[in-house]
Design a protein around this nucleic acid. Structure first.
Length: 609
DNA sequence: TCGTGACGCACC
DNA sequence: AAACGGTGCGTCACGA
């Protein structure tokens, strides 16, 4: 057994590294002394839990001043020891338990279902204490930043720099060091153990900072993390043949349009043209100007703005270069960002597993990576068609009808808005009539402008942004914005109330008890934070109800105001209705109602027109 | 060669 | 009086 001594916040700590099976007796003795609660962490070969080469290397257990490191990679006896203590310990502290529990489920044979009820996650506590990131004036929720702020800045710096340092020592990259570092490396062991000591200390520091009003959210967020980890585990079936064909097709498209675009660039040079890429905006700008195009826009750093709207305007006027740039960029973006990514990370059963950050944004909104489900193109079914239902099943989507506007109506208590939703009136039409008069009909173009304002107002946008988005002149845009404010006066009042609260105390509190910090310089953001966060809570409460109804195995992903599922085709309509019914909820006088749709075999089937 | 900021773009 | 909120990802360009 190897024993290392270190100091944390001026106090001595000890890290034991089990080297031989005989050392396990002392480890079990430690576990017995700490049978009520232990912090747990694991070191693995990477973060690609579902890929073939993934392995657990170490599993660590610790309390505030002592840690034990098990070399799981070196034999099943150590894995068995880790398993035993995971099962026998009453409460388990993790920093981001979603990762470790997924790892233990797939690679250690300990089902997540068994461990989740015992988990206390310091990352969740930290988010409830302060959801801001380090760039937003907060601390963030990473182990490094939390350690720096709450425990010991020197230790934080060492933890942060360690893997970079080891990578340099081993002449490899930071990404590869996790799988290549010698398991017996003393510093690797030291900090592997240290992580549990830090997590154990963090819950004591951050837990008390969760405001009393947020207390119920602690259990709620652990539940949401649990449900999301089951969806991650299930994964989403990939249509491999389709996806491979699509990748080829996009590659050909990209090559074709690249050749055209490059031809225009090469013309600018007498001989040996320098490298060209359609993604190099400065170079694209050079070609455009050589063709006589005046580029009016500038970026914040003063460079010529070459974006989609400029290029599309030119392409519409028949500029072949602009068209080629647009098409080449799009084909590449679609292939590299999505299609090839799916093929790369697909597991041996042809499934892709998203990584869900269930408690991410300042507003607690989730983020989803791996399958970047929140950002897949929705005007076209091509990309979504990569994902399909399980055999014998159909893809079902249930979304909330105008979720944020309904939440806004409920929270603000605006009578007109509430009545509109009760009556099933067309809210966009209502706003359009308030701005332009009663002669406006469902088919009038003014309704579209009103729609932009209805959503834009929730974001805190004003006349200028509405003008930009609709192409209206500023004066008309202002008329629609004023029309909105006149039509729904209580929304304005509510926004003002939130802004006052925000400026007085620096935060607002949602009905679920979540504290949302509001920057002093942007008090107008308070309304959006409140609506966005409360909408997220609506979707998450739905997840809990679906889980309790036993539907989780069919769920694929939550996407803001939507939940995607794969259900048996025979009873798909019925299942969809059931999910929709469980999702809807009453918020004061407003029903946050849902719409169910059975797409078919593929996710893309819902996006064909 | 790696990390990072700026930019552009995909979505709700 | 007016105020666009929240994300992730790929690429380029640049500096260490």
């Amino acid at each position: 057994m190897l024993t290392q001594d270190a100091r944390v916040a001026g106090e001595p700590v000890t890290i034991h590294r089990v080297e031989r099976p005989e050392d396990l007796d002392d480890f079990y003795e430690f576990a017995r002394r700490n049978h009520r609660v232990l912090a747990v962490d694991s070191e693995t070969t990477g973060v690609d839990i579902f890929s073939d080469g993934f392995r657990i290397r170490l599993i660590q257990f610790g309390n505030k001043d002592e840690a034990w490191v098990l070399p799981v990679e070196q034999g099943p006896v150590y894995a068995a020891a880790a398993k035993r203590v995971l099962r026998e310990t009453g409460r388990l502290i993790f920093q981001n338990g979603m990762f470790d529990l997924q790892v233990f489920d797939r690679h250690l044979g300990v089902p997540m279902e068994e461990l989740w009820p015992k988990v206390l996650d310091s990352k969740i506590l930290a988010h409830l204490a302060d959801p801001r990131g380090p760039e937003e004036g907060g601390i963030g929720q990473s182990l490094e930043k939390l350690t720096e702020h709450y425990i010991d800045p020197v230790v934080a710096e060492e933890v942060k720099g360690l893997m970079t340092k080891l990578a340099k020592e081993h002449k490899t990259t930071k990404a590869k060091i996790w799988s290549t570092i010698d398991l017996d490396h003393p510093e690797y062991n030291l900090y592997a153990g240290m992580d549990t000591i830090l997590a154990a200390r963090l819950v004591g520091k951050v837990g008390p900072l969760v405001p009393p009003v947020s207390r119920d959210l602690i259990a709620f967020e652990h539940r949401i993390a649990e449900i999301c980890s089951y969806m991650e585990r299930t994964g989403f079936l990939l249509d491999i043949e389709y996806t491979e064909d699509l990748s080829d097709e996009l590659r050909h498209r990209e090559d074709y349009y690249n050749t055209i675009a490059r031809g225009f660039w090469d013309e600018l040079w007498e001989e040996d043209p320098p490298d060209f890429s359609v993604n190099a905006t400065e170079k694209v700008a050079d070609v455009l100007e050589a063709r006589g195009v005046v580029i009016p826009g500038r970026t914040p750093t003063g460079r010529r703005r070459v974006d989609k709207s400029l290029l599309e305007g030119l392409a519409k006027d028949g500029d072949e270069f602009a068209l080629a740039v647009i098409e080449a960029k799009k084909a590449r973006k679609w292939r590299t960002t999505w299609v090839d990514g799916f093929l790369d990370q697909m597991d041996s059963d042809g499934r892709c597993h998203a990584s869900i950050n269930a408690l991410r944004a300042r507003t607690a909104r989730m983020s989803i990576t791996g399958i970047p489900a929140q950002t897949l193109p929705s005007k076209d079914s091509l990309i979504r068609s990569c994902f399909i239902a399980d055999p014998g099943e159909s893809i079902v989507s249930v979304d909330y009808q105008a979720q944020e506007l309904r939440v806004l109506a409920a929270l603000s208590g605006d009578r007109t808005m509430i009545r509109a939703f009760l009556n099933g009136d067309d809210l966009h039409l209502l706003t359009a009539r308030a701005a332009f008069g009663d002669h406006i009909t469902k088919d009038s173009p003014e309704r579209k402008y009103a729609k932009v304002v209805n959503f834009g107002r929730v974001y805190g946008g004003g006349a200028r942004t509405v003008a930009e988005q609709t192409g209206l002149d500023l004066k008309t845009a202002k008329r629609v914005v004023d029309g909105f404010d006149a039509a729904y006066p209580e929304v304005k009042r509510y926004s003002n109330k939130l802004q006052t609260q925000a400026q007085r105390q620096g935060f607002i509190t949602t009905p679920s008890g979540r504290r949302l910090p509001v920057d002093k310089e942007r008090p107008y953001a308070a309304l959006n934070y409140m609506v966005q966060s409360t909408s997220r809570d609506v979707t998450c409460r739905a997840l809990v109800r679906l889980h309790e109804a036993g539907i989780t195995p069919y769920l694929r992903l939550p996407i803001h105001d939507e939940i995607l599922a794969s259900v048996p085709t025979k009873s798909a309509e019925k299942a969809a209705r059931k999910i929709a019914r469980l999702m809807q909820e009453q918020m004061g006088p407003v029903e946050i109602s849902t719409d169910a749709e059975v797409y078919g075999r593929s996710w893309g089937d819902g996006y064909r027109n």
